[in-house]
Amino acid sequence: MAQTAQRTNGNGVHASEASKDELLSFYRDMLLIRRFEERAGQLYGMGLIGGFCHLYIGQEAVVVGLQAALKAGDQMITGYRDHGHMLAQGMDPNAIMAELTGRRDGSSKGKGGSMHMFSIEKAFYGGHGIVGAQVSLGTGLAFANKYRKDGKVCLTFFGDGAANQGQVYESFNMAALWKLPVVYIVENNQYAMGTSIQRSSSETHLYKRGVSFNIPGEEVDGMDVLAVRDAGRRAVEFVRGGNGPILLEMKTYRYRGHSMSDPAKYRTKEEVDEVKTHRDPIDHVKKLITDAGHASEDDLKAIDREIRDIVVKSAEFAQASPEPDPSELMTDIYL
């Protein structure tokens, strides 16, 4: 791994092959996120989900590809656009959807909501609502890994907006200084809420943001799950080897607004359509599968139905689950 920032997508480095099973698994996992998010958007529209709800549609390849690079026990932590990460880490869609509807069977008993969900069992540490806070926290998870010498790696996700928060660089400095096992992933979907990266960042190539800390960086096509997986494998191996942190910039795109209440007037419909039509991460995998003859349209339809059933059931579960008992108001404040 080079010690300097580099771009590895497009010219030169090509994604390696993937097996039939792996491709089908990527297709399934990405589709689950997309269908889940669409359903969440629908429940939001029906008034069943309240507050803020940030959907991951368009960015599915990032978390699915990176998850494939992890070993059991490796941690993930992210910001508020977290539904995809939880699904990728194997958390129960029912519990996630029930948390979105604020019900007692939600993964945080209905007390956290969209932005605040966790699972120690699945090594998912949130789910954090303050932009950039998870970067310091993820660095702390990595500190604990090193303290315990347990060989675990922490994937710390943040967006292009969070990339301008000061504590990101405070964390970079300590992580590099102490060679902490953390992979920083900036999911550059090009808009920090309504502000484009060009309007917010003096250096828009975010993979270079670690240079002054001696953190190697790499730009990756975040719409290509295989490119993501390969970059993830390289990064995780580098970090697990005791070489300190690494920064991956995933060039990606969110199809929906920043949150449900965002009319997305800061970008053109043509821009969004262009990505949906030509760079969609699920279409890409679908094409890889059908081109290789791994599955027929009918086979894929069967997967679609299977995913739809999981999502429909999660929505039913989330509506059937009762609201939290009033006694829950005063629990979980102290241990």
């Binding site: 540490y125 926290l137 660095t139 702390g140 998870l141 500190f143 303290y147 405070e170 300590m174």
Partner: peptide
């Protein structure tokens, strides 16, 4: 010994605590 970086090391500490330290 930490650098002079209160926001960062406070968050790092909380992350380490979340991991059980």
């Amino acid at each position: 010994d930490t650098p002079i970086t209160e926001h960062g090391f406070a968050g790092l500490g909380v992350g380490a605590a979340m991991a059980g330290l």
